[in-house]
């Protein structure tokens, strides 16, 4: 009895010694004892507000008790290391996760006070109100015109050709793509360059006049010049739209967003004004991430 206990003790001592050594090397703060979110996750004039959101993929929990508000006409950036759940969280906001059978979302998610996970709610109008731009530019294999006109057409926004033309033009202008494509609206959308394709996707999204635009790493497949254009565009769009953007680039988050949310292993660690997050983070995990100690 005693002998085994002493062996156990020795093993434990060894283990803790290893642990301290590891921590000394990486100096990675633990996420296990994170309780709640530091900073200012909630705002006064919230467009969308999420409370106690838990997301599961089958048995595995991907998001733990996340609460966050997205203010009106605000750009909220979500950053964090790979697999931290920021994309999963973003995709909950217009129920794109519905397409994954094993995904289960719990908690309260509201758009202007309306529960978006209400079983009686129709996702089709929801997605017209909360549009999405994806990581990889994904224009339809149709003409540029038809790409932009697709949303207005299926939602029946207009039946007149002239009005549709106008919607297409204003959307392309807002996406600052009009000047580049106005002479070849009937050319296939897939023939554009990567950056143009992504702006086309943005034009397609804003053609149905959504209230919120979700962007899932919209620049990760683009070169720096195209990225700069999209970032400029995001700044312009924030005048009319509420934007939530997931990004891997901290510089991008710093450039385009008003507030930044830092996710870590499915938990929302810190939400603060972007400037504060990048200059004076409250939480040691945030600090570790933005100083490049992991991620």
């Amino acid at each position: 009895m005693e002998a085994t206990a002493s062996v156990d003790n020795a093993a434990q001592a060894e283990e803790s010694k290893l642990k301290t050594m590891k921590e000394e090397v990486i100096a990675q703060p633990s996420v296990d004892d994170v309780q709640g979110t530091v900073g200012t996750p909630f705002v006064e004039n919230a467009k969308m507000s999420m409370r106690d959101v838990n997301v599961y993929y089958a048995e595995k929990q991907a998001i733990f008790n996340v609460g966050l508000d997205i203010g009106k006409n605000e750009v909220v950036a979500m950053i964090g290391p790979s697999g931290c759940g920021k994309s999963t969280f973003l995709r909950c906001l217009n129920r794109m996760n519905d397409t994954i059978d094993i995904c289960k979302v719990e908690g309260s998610l509201t758009l202007e006070g309306q529960d978006i996970y209400d079983p009686k709610l129709d996702v089709v109008p929801l997605r017209a109100r909360v549009g999405m731009v994806f990581q990889k530019p994904n224009p339809f294999p149709k003409s540029i015109y038809d790409n932009v006109a697709y949303g207005p057409r299926i939602h029946g926004l207009t039946s007149r050709k002239a009005e549709l033309d106008e919607i297409v033009e204003t959307s392309l202008r807002k996406a600052s793509l009009w000047d580049e494509v106005k002479d070849r609206l009937q050319a296939p959308g897939t023939g554009l360059s990567g950056g143009q394709q992504q702006r086309l996707c943005i034009a397609r999204t804003i053609a149905v006049s959504p209230e919120v635009i979700l962007m899932d790493e919209p620049c990760s497949a683009l070169d720096p010049i195209a990225t700069a254009k999209i970032e400029e565009l995001i700044a312009e769009l924030s005048e009319n739209f509420t934007i939530a953007i997931v990004t891997h680039s901290m510089q991008q988050a710093a450039r385009v967003s008003n507030r930044t949310a830092y996710f870590h292993l499915g938990k929302l660690i810190e939400v603060n004004d972007t400037e504060k997050v990048f200059t004076n983070p409250e939480h040691e995990l945030t600090e570790a991430y933005i100083t490049g100690r992991f991620g």
């Binding site: 997605r127 017209a128 549009g131 994806f134 994904n138 339809f140």
Partner: peptide
């Protein structure tokens, strides 16, 4: 058919049938 096309259609509010028939 690449999933990105399905996501694009669903993302701007196409119903499942519209996604299937149009894309």
């Amino acid at each position: 058919v690449p999933p990105s096309i399905r996501e694009a259609a669903l993302g701007i509010g196409a119903s499942k049938m519209q996604m299937i028939l149009h894309h």
